[in-house]
């Protein structure tokens, strides 16, 4: 299980890196799906099977299909690829990479001060749903209102 965690983590990092340096938008999307699926494996290893399944279905399934649909609708094909090649010079990466590296360094510094081995306990769908429909029922209602607002906004914005 521990090996699986590190393997999936490495795949997640590599494919996420491939997403941000990719010029072909459909390839980038496929790398993003790979990254999300490996994060789902990490969730499973960390004892959260429900979150892993939701990550695969909602993130890698529904949200990525939405992206693909818009990419096909806008017909971002070969011409966008050449445009991306022009935009994506190595020098544009320098300043953002340095800033993100500083941020990551601070984060790692803080994280490095705590060390605790996680005894992986499976928290299954039963415990999660007992919480969702118990004390957190208001959060579920608010989430549904948020989704409704998103639906209305998407319909209104994408309308001619």
């Amino acid at each position: 299980m521990t090996t699986l965690f590190y393997l999936a983590g490495a795949i997640a990092v590599i494919s996420t890196f491939a997403v941000i340096v990719q010029t072909n938008i459909v390839h980038a999307l496929l790398y993003l799906i790979l990254s999300l699926l490996s994060v789902a494996v990490v969730f499973y290893v960390l004892g959260a099977p429900f979150a892993a399944v939701l990550e695969a279905i909602v993130y890698a399934g529904a949200i990525m299909v939405l992206f693909l649909f818009v990419i096909m609708m806008l017909n971002l094909g070969q011409h966008t690829r050449e445009q991306e090649r022009g935009w994506l010079a190595a020098r544009v990466f320098v300043a953002p990479a340095i800033m993100a590296a500083i941020l990551l360094g601070q984060l790692l510094n803080v994280i490095g001060q705590l060390s605790h081995d996680v005894e992986v306990t499976r928290v299954g769908v039963f415990e999660v749903s007992a919480l969702l429909f118990g004390p957190y029922v208001l959060a579920v209602e608010l989430a549904s209102i948020l989704l409704l607002a998103g639906l209305v906004a998407a319909y209104h914005l994408a309308k001619k």
Binding site: V13, I20, I25, P96, A97, L103, G112, S115
Partner: peptide, 28 residues
């Protein structure tokens, strides 16, 4: 089996930083 918690958090941090680089760099 046990997994060190800091490794999971480091993975989250690296992914977050990569996403941040993407947001800052991309024009598309």
């Amino acid at each position: 089996e046990t997994i060190p918690i800091e490794h999971g958090l480091i993975l989250a941090g690296i992914l977050f930083a990569l996403g941040l680089i993407g947001v800052l760099t991309r024009r598309n």
